[in-house]
């Protein structure tokens, strides 16, 4: 899966995340942060919201996030979708990962082709996205 980088501001600026999937399947989203020491922190999840949306949630302060990796995972269940549409739903799956509070301000990342795959003959789709936090070395 392709990883992405979100540049942090120096100091105590708070970085926030919002996840917005677009799919006619039943979607679940979970966001976790893996810190440099290996600690795993829960950031947020979509609960029983079948749209899979994680509303804007704080990830942490810039000073605490350096070299951490934000990992968002999605599972989509296509029980409510006719089988002949499963491939189409997979091909047209869109997930927007919105981050703000960083050096470049609000930034959207999108699910890439190699981030997602079909499971169990296409009835389920999974997607994983890893976003690294770094300080921009360029002035």
């Amino acid at each position: 899966m392709a990883s992405r980088v979100y540049f942090l501001k120096k100091g105590q600026a708070v970085v926030s995340l919002e996840v917005t999937p677009t799919s006619i399947g039943i979607v679940s989203s979970v966001a976790k942060l893996k810190k440099t020491g290996g600690t795993i922190v829960d950031i947020g999840d979509s609960g029983n919201d079948a749209t899979g949306k994680i509303p804007l949630v704080p990830v942490g302060k810039s000073s605490d996030l350096l070299s951490s990796v934000l990992v968002i995972t999605n599972i989509i269940d296509l029980t409510a979708v006719p089988k002949n549409q499963w491939k189409q739903v997979f091909d047209t799956l869109r997930i927007t990962y919105h981050l703000e509070g960083g050096a470049d301000g609000p930034q959207d990342f999108n699910v890439d082709t190699d981030d997602k795959s079909q499971l169990m003959e296409g009835k389920f789709i999974i997607a994983t996205k890893a976003i690294k936090f770094e300080i921009n070395a360029m002035p």
Partner: peptide, 14 residues
């Protein structure tokens, strides 16, 4: 039922 499925998926996902 849709909410129930979403809830189970989130448990599995986590």
């Amino acid at each position: 039922t849709v909410k129930g499925i979403a809830g189970r998926l989130t448990t599995i996902n986590k």
